[in-house]
Design a binder for these strands. Structure first.
Lengths: 171, 171
DNA sequence: CGGACCATGTCAGTCACTGTCATCACCATA
DNA sequence: TATGGTGATGACAGTGACTGACATGGTCCG
């Protein structure tokens, strides 16, 4: 992350990263599938949390609300690491390749959530839509949370954003 | 597309594509930013349609419904090219790299839509959320349309999917 | 006819990523 | 202690996507 921040993602070679870490280029690729993955190593942890939270939500909760619980849980983890999240996001925002990878990570979250919902007995397309919508809320809320001047509580921003979604889709 | 379908995206080199087209590799890269873009050349046309349709929707229409009009318009263009869409989608489904690129194309659609909504006087986060939700519906509807056994009307599938979204987000 | 321009070809170079083999530390078991 | 298995790392060579620089040829315009 230091190197990416200094000279930008595209101007950083894997050889340089490996050097800085005291490793070989080859070894780098044994730990990370590609140059982008370094920035997304922690995302599987978030996904686990999301999945288990949605799975463990009260059975009588509406699908979208179960997803909301999961997204709030992710926000809870992020809370307190806003500086880190900001620096990381600045790096991603500066590189189309990294944005692309972030989108696939979010899509993975969505797919996993949809699968859990189906496990809760939610049929398609409701499951897919609730998951997609929930992840969309996460994305929007995350951006707002990072951009906000005063340090609002992340879960609170998520809750507000879910309310905004409901308002927007209620015609 | 022929080559990608035959031997798969990853097993096709740009040299081969250029050969088949009677061009140089260098010339290929002057027409397409990268190997993936070939499959997404037509997407800017769809984006134009989406943007103008949302922009020209009746002013009193709720944001999500304006977006629905735009997505329906896209479906109208796709209608009648289901075979092509299917073949293309099969190729994309077989390659993570192509899926990644498709996600960024969809994200671009979403961002453009949000911008148009803001132009209609919709504030954030409502604009972003309506756009994201609308594109999510598009994605889900598109998949259903392609997977469906009998050849349902694409715009009809889109409309159904928007209804499903509203049902899902109505607590 | 001369020149601006645009598309294409040619060539050399960088860099992400991969397959293969060797080395080495650690650990278990005879 | 010796032996062998395992897992992480290094060394090295190779492929292929993509880029920059320069040359060439065609077309249009004065």
């Amino acid at each position: 992350m230091a190197l990416y921040a200094e000279r930008g993602f595209e101007n950083t070679t894997v050889a340089e990263i490996a050097d800085r870490a005291g490793l070989t280029e080859r070894t780098f690729f044994r730990h990370y599938a590609d140059k982008r993955e370094v920035l997304f190593a922690g995302s599987s942890h978030l996904q686990d949390l999301l999945e288990t939270t949605v799975a463990d939500a009260p059975a009588d909760l509406a699908p979208i609300d179960a997803v909301a619980r999961g997204v709030e849980a992710m926000a809870g983890v992020l809370q307190g690491r806003r500086d880190f999240a900001r620096r990381r996001q600045a790096i991603i925002a500066a590189s189309p390749e990294l944005q692309e990878r972030e989108l696939t990570k979010l899509a993975t979250l969505s797919a996993a959530t949809a699968a859990v919902l189906r496990g809760r007995g939610v049929a398609d397309p409701a499951a897919s839509l609730a998951a997609e919508a929930g992840i969309a809320v996460f994305r929007v809320a995350f951006e707002r949370w990072i951009a906000d001047d005063e340090d609002r509580d992340a879960t609170e921003v998520v809750r507000d954003s879910f309310d905004a979604l409901k308002a927007v889709t209620a015609t």
